[in-house]
Structure formats: structure tokens, C-alpha cells
Design a protein around this nucleic acid. Structure first.
Lengths: 348, 348
DNA sequence: CTGAAAGCGCTTACAG
DNA sequence: CTGAAAGCGCTTACAG
């Protein structure tokens, strides 16, 4: 026993009457050990409750058997799903997962690349959604350096210029599809709430939004494009401001929220203004969070299969596959959307 | 540079023309280094972008600067909050956090205590809520062994018999208070949905439920006590079965769900049966998840201040405070509860 | 089939 | 104020 209370390979070797080399061989299932010796060693390992130190192994083998994953704040349950998927997959391969939320990475005294490098992780998955502008700058500066130390896989809507292995979100496709779905229901005043104006990881949504409107030969109305943070509270404020800034007859008949959190914020305000969903207002979110189907009314949304995505990112990381691939997605239509109210008569 | 692409202390020492001992001293801010030497070394560290290996430090110093946290599946956003709180606090003290969800711990080939011991974590926080019976058995068997290796802090409603440092949930107080609130509103048929019958970490809720009924001199009706898993789907099924098993005039006028997830499951069924909330049915959840205040109608719940709790658990772990303390909590009353319908006339 | 020895990248007495 | 040396607990050629 050492001072931490752990038995070491030396105790096992001594007790079994062999060298530490042999113990190490047994540990790794090498076939160059005689059955008798193997048995003896295994018995001692059990008896002493011996566990090889992952730390020492890390030093020797240059491997820590730990992956890192950088996600936006976990308060959006979406990211918990990605983590879950990544964790389960990592575990299958014998890896643990250390989780680093972006929220804290951007602290001034803090260099994410070095923080990760310091721990000699065997790889890192980075989700670049909803990246604060400061963090985006940090990321791009550090990514290059970070990649010297360990393999990296990105998740999100990543600019082509960033040539890293990526599971890519086709934001513009999603948005265009949603807009198409709404225009088919007769909607002409379609708001889009969420995102940051200068975010280079998010603007593809705007591209899809514009394309959808164009396809239906509808005007782009600046009042319907509201930027806000990706939280329910922010959605609430954004929605209120939009409604207040327009005469009711100019209110949108449909709102696309950047995610489900923002969507429930918008919905809360809609109710407060006496709008019925979907009769007066259709709402679509994104992420298909667990509460979406339990929402009243059930919320239309995009399912991005986050759990599977997390697992996939781990497989990509471990396999060293450097390609850029697209994430799966599916538009889920529920009762929160419906036909646009007759445009001739005013809402209410 | 070594083969991982990292510069080592040797490169720094050579470049600065000093011994590795001196570099180490500079790294640790020891004052026994001449200003001139210090400056030189610091310059080289910067120039070479040198970061000491946390792995090597772990081997030498017997410290890994990593804490572990074992939580139920993160799909309940509640646990994401605990993690966030723990993470932020840990980071302040220079620790990283490795997250281990219970869900996967109980796999047969898997021994949590040893898994953690193997990684030589500097401490571990274990949340024992919603523990599957298998996991509870595992936990108690391993906890003793685990504690030999590293300090442990428990979170949850922990039996007194388990003498570990604990942040304790007073489930029975919470429940009694909720029941009291409902009986004051005239409710006499109060259902309680969630939990497992044999769970020794959960049964204190039943104690409080019974105490609340007794205080109001109300009968305990077995049909109103439904056990189910802590998910929205499970709540949905449980609620449906309860309603189906009783003539409508025996339906409860209030439902206490074990958490907010279960609550929205119950609510969904209530709507489907044409029950209005709160006119026909009051609902209370637990956790005050972000969607509770955005629910339609806003959901009454217990706020358990999870973020702060996570931080507190880390402080407790690092300070070595071995006491048992109680978690803060607050009953949040929102529009999902109201006066019981007149017991004379039937619902509907 | 087995073992002695070097080395992974640090920290920490110990000596000067 | 500074450095040589031992040691943390493993793995991996190398030799036999």
C-alpha cells in the first residue's frame, strides 16, 4: 500500500513471487505467460484488490484513456444528451470523459487549449453552437495549437474554412424546410427569433430563413428577425419587444424559435397577449427536448438526434476519421403549428 | 518536444540554462528563486508554450486535480445544474471534473469504486437520488472501499446509518409541507406519483406524505400512491393507469409528482381526460426546472437550488468537512394549484 | 515463458 | 539561491 491507500504493482509482484513485468503482462492479457503463473497473479490481484493506476499508465503509455468534451452550458438539456451519448460510447472503449462547459472557459485567466493539453487528454470533442463571440475568437486561436496535442472533432455549423473533422449541422436546410412548411400552411408573416447577428457559427440559419422566404416570394421584414440569447428568458423578452413594436395587424402568424427553450419563452408571451396556439400563432422550436411533446400544445421542432450524435463524435474521434460529415435531423410536426388565420380579417 | 507534441520540463531547463528543479520552483511560485532566474525561466516557459503535465504531477504529488461526480442520467436537467455548480466551484480551485452517470455504472462488468480508484481522483461527489435498486446495492458495497481511496460527499436523502459526509434532502419535510398546502386549499383526494417501493433513499417522501395526510386527518388511499420511474413517460403511464382504475368521482383533485418531469407527464394525461388545471386538478412537481415557470399553466414545484448545491458539495469535499448538513429548499406556488372543486358536485 | 533496467515528466527532500 | 538524485507506478524494448 502506498500513502493513498492503493496497492501497487510491486505489492502484487512480491506477493505472487514474480516480477512486475509479469504482472503487467497478465494485466494486459498477453499470451506469453504460463497458465500457472497467470492464475497465481490473477488470484493475488483479486486478493489485494489491485487496480493499476491510470495516472502511471498515462505517463508511460502516453495515453490517459480520458476524452474531453466541450459543450455550451448544460442548462440546455440538449447538451446533456450529447454528453450521455458520448459517455456511453467512450465507456465501451474504456475511456472516461471530462466535461468542460464553455461558460467557464472564457474566463480571462483561462486558456482552454492549454487547460486540455495540460491534462493530456486523448482527444476532445468541441460543440461550437451558441458560441459567445469571445469564445469563438478563443476557439479559433486555440484550435490550431490544441490539435498539435490531441485529435479534435467539432460539432455544429462549422465554416468550411475550419478544416477539422466535423459533424456538421445543415442549419440552412433545416430553416428552409421549416419556412417551407409554414408557407404551405398559408403563413406569410413568419418571425425568426434567436441567434447573434455576428455569429459566424449561426448565420447559416439566416441563409435558410431568407431562402425559404424567397422560395415563397415573400418579403423579408426586418421586424420579424429578432436576435437574442438561446434561453427561455431571452425568448420571452424578444417576443414581447417584437409584439410591442408592431400594431397587432402586423404581428406574425408564425414564429420560428432558434431552439425549444426560446420557443417556450415566446409561447409564454403569446399566451399573455391572448394569442391562441396554433389558431392565432404557430410556433416551431428546435432540438426536440423531452418537454416538447409534453408542451401544451405539443411543440413542433427539429429532432437532431443528439444522443446518437454524441456517440458518433466519439467514434469519429477514436477512429481518427478526419472527414466532414452531416448530422441527421428530422422535422417533427406537432399541434403547435396550424393553418395561418385568414389574412383578410385581423387577428382578434 | 516529446512524441505527444508537448514540451517537457527538460526542454525548459535546458533552454533557460538551469536545472529542472529550478523550473519546478518557478512553476510553483516558490520564493527561493532569484528574480533574474525567475524572469529567464518564465520567458522560456512562455516561448516554448510549456504546460506541466497533470499526469506526471499526479504521479509525483499523489494528486490529480480532478474530482469525480456521480449523477443520475443527465437527461433530467436537474443534474446538469448540480454539475454546473460543482464544475464552477471546482475550477476556482484548479480542479477538473469527470462526470460518471449512474446509468452506466451498473453495467455488470463495471465496478464504480474501482473505476474511480483507478483514476486516482482527488475526491468524489455521489448523488444518490433515484438510485436503481441494483445501483443502491452496488453503492453501499463499494462506498466503504471507495472511501479508503478518496474523500466522498453524498447528496440526497441518505439514511442516517450511512455515516458519510452528506448534503441531505429532507424529503419528508418537503412532502409534508406540500400536502399541508393542498389540504389548506380544501383538497382531500391527493395522489402521490413516483418513486420505487423498496428504495431506501426515497421512502422518506412517503413518510412526509403520510404525515401530511394524518395532520389533516385524511385517509391514506392506496390507489392514490402510484410508483413509477422519474421520467415524463413514466408519469404519463402512471397517471393514466390511476385514472382508468377509478370511477371519475374518485379521481384525485390534486397530484403531487415526484419531480417536474413526472409532473408534465401527469399533466398531459389530465388534459387528455378533459381535466382543467387547476380547476379540476392541482399539480405540484419538484426541482423547479427551467420549464416549470413556462409551463401552461405555470407549475408549482420545490426549488432545491441545485446549482448552489453542487458548489457546496465541492467545497465540502475539498475542505474535508465530514458533517451531515441539510440542503436548502423552497416551495414555489404557481397557477397549477388552486382550490379543490366543491366535493359535493362531481367533477364534470 | 520470465526478469532487470530504462524511461515517462514531474516533485521533493537533501546537500551545498 | 541552485542542482543532483531518488522516487511516484507503470510499460516496453531487450536479453535470456
Amino acid at each position: 500500500m502506498n500513502e493513498t491507500g492503493n496497492n501497487t504493482i510491486y505489492e502484487v509482484a512480491k506477493e505472487a513471487g514474480v516480477s512486475i513485468t509479469t504482472v503487467s503482462r497478465v494485466l494486459h492479457g498477453k499470451d506469453t505467460v504460463s497458465p500457472k503463473t497467470r492464475q497465481k497473479v490473477e488470484a493475488v490481484i483479486k486478493q489485494l484488490n489491485y487496480r493499476p493506476s491510470a495516472i502511471a499508465r498515462g505517463l508511460t503509455g502516453q495515453k490517459t484513456n480520458t476524452l474531453g468534451i466541450i459543450l455550451p452550458k448544460l442548462t440546455n438539456p440538449n447538451y446533456a444528451l450529447i454528453f450521455n451519448g458520448a459517455y456511453e460510447e467512450a465507456r465501451k472503449h474504456g475511456y472516461a470523459v471530462s466535461l468542460f462547459p464553455w461558460s467557464s472557459l472564457s474566463a480571462e485567466d483561462y486558456n482552454p487549449a492549454l487547460m486540455l493539453a495540460e491534462r493530456r487528454l486523448d482527444g476532445v470533442i468541441i460543440n461550437v453552437e451558441y458560441l459567445a463571440p469571445e469564445d469563438a475568437v478563443l476557439l479559433e486561436r486555440e484550435l490550431k495549437e490544441l490539435q498539435q496535442y490531441m485529435p479534435v472533432v467539432l460539432i455544429g455549423c462549422v465554416p468550411q474554412a475550419l478544416e477539422y473533422p466535423t459533424i456538421n449541422y445543415k442549419y440552412s436546410e433545416w430553416m428552409q424546410k421549416i419556412v417551407g412548411e409554414l408557407t404551405a400552411l398559408g403563413h406569410e408573416r413568419i418571425a425568426f427569433i434567436g441567434g447573434t447577428e455576428e455569429d459566424r457559427y449561426d448565420f447559416r440559419r439566416d441563409v435558410g430563413y431568407a431562402a425559404g422566404l424567397k422560395e415563397a416570394r415573400l418579403p423579408f421584414v426586418g421586424n420579424y428577425r429578432i436576435y437574442c440569447k438561446a434561453t427561455a428568458e431571452a425568448g420571452e423578452n424578444a417576443m414581447r419587444e417584437m409584439l410591442e413594436s408592431l400594431q397587432p395587424r402586423y404581428w406574425p402568424t408564425a414564429v420560428i424559435a432558434i431552439n425549444d427553450m426560446v420557443a417556450i419563452g415566446c409561447q409564454k408571451v403569446a399566451f399573455r397577449y391572448g394569442l391562441r396556439i396554433p389558431q392565432d400563432l404557430s410556433i416551431v422550436g428546435c432540438d426536440n427536448l423531452f418537454f416538447a411533446s409534453f408542451n401544451n400544445p405539443p411543440l413542433s421542432t427539429v429532432d437532431t438526434k443528439q444522443q446518437e450524435l454524441g456517440a458518433r463524435a466519439v467514434r469519429k474521434l477514436l477512429s481518427g476519421d478526419g472527414s466532414r460529415e452531416n448530422a441527421e435531423w428530422e422535422l417533427i410536426l406537432r399541434e403547435s403549428i396550424g393553418k395561418a388565420a385568414d389574412p383578410v380579417s385581423d387577428t382578434e
